[in-house]
């Protein structure tokens, strides 16, 4: 095991049960995500990409196996501890419904910092700075519904990185975006990765994005089919 792994899984299983029917989504996944890596997990729909991200992010519990964040197992953590972990160590970018519609772009970006208890001025300063880096500062005082999908995802990325998490997990962040906007967003995430040393793991089924990452983990039927270093 690498000593610089931010996240590690051991024989990770997730089985969804509906009545007596069992649907395995992940079947014994072992992987390590290194610090500062810019990694994509790719595969067809139903391959287990989103499930893997949700488990890594503590949004769901595995059926079997273990997840380690910074070397600490996550399975023993209570719901509140998991929430605390998400708040302080993990950034999220979701496919849709990313931003709170009642908060402005600036407030959305600063929301995680507010949850962390960062003082008002400090959190606004940090939020403005990251919005500026991502080129959406001009929308700071607007509500999300005034922004395009790509701009909203930029704000979501800003919110994910503003608190300097150990890892940012992005579940199909480009799924609702056109090709150019998708590439721009991935480039932006890449820039955050390089300039802030933020570790990224994102799920995608868009093969055009994969030449921009360090590593691609291909999933098929809940198993790692290939784990390739691109760069």
């Amino acid at each position: 095991m690498s000593t610089s792994a931010v996240m590690r899984t051991e024989d990770l299983w997730k089985i969804y049960r509906t009545g007596t029917a069992e649907t395995p989504a992940l079947r014994g996944v072992d992987l390590e995500i290194e610090e500062r890596e810019f990694t994509a997990t790719a595969g067809p729909s139903g391959s287990g990409k989103s499930t893997l991200l949700h488990l890594l992010g503590g949004l769901d519990r595995p059926t079997g196996g273990e997840i380690y964040l910074d070397g600490q197992p996550m399975s023993d953590l209570s719901k509140d501890k998991l929430a605390q972990l998400r708040l302080t160590r993990i950034g999220f970018v979701f496919q849709a419904y990313n931003l709170l519609p009642v908060l402005t772009v600036l407030e959305n970006t600063a929301f995680v910092l507010e949850l962390q208890g960062v003082p008002y001025r400090e959190r606004l300063r940090r939020a403005r700075a990251i919005l500026a880096e991502l080129g959406v500062e001009k929308y700071a005082d607007q509500f999300p519904n005034r922004l395009s999908g790509g701009e909203q995802q930029r704000v979501a990325v800003a919110r994910a990185v503003v608190s300097d998490p150990a890892i940012v997990l992005a579940d199909e962040p480009t799924a609702n975006l056109d090709t150019k906007t998708s590439l721009d967003l991935i480039d932006l995430m890449r820039r955050m990765n390089e300039e802030h040393n933020t570790t990224f793991l994102f799920a995608t089924h868009d093969m055009r994005l994969l030449d921009r990452v360090d590593r691609v983990i291909y999933l098929e039927d809940g198993r790692i089919a290939r784990d390739e270093r691109v760069r």
Partner: peptide, 16 residues
């Protein structure tokens, strides 16, 4: 519900 889900997923505690 979705927005509350988002707030919870971002790490808001249940008490919050």
């Amino acid at each position: 519900t979705r927005e509350l889900g988002l707030i919870l997923s971002l790490g808001a505690s249940r008490g919050r």
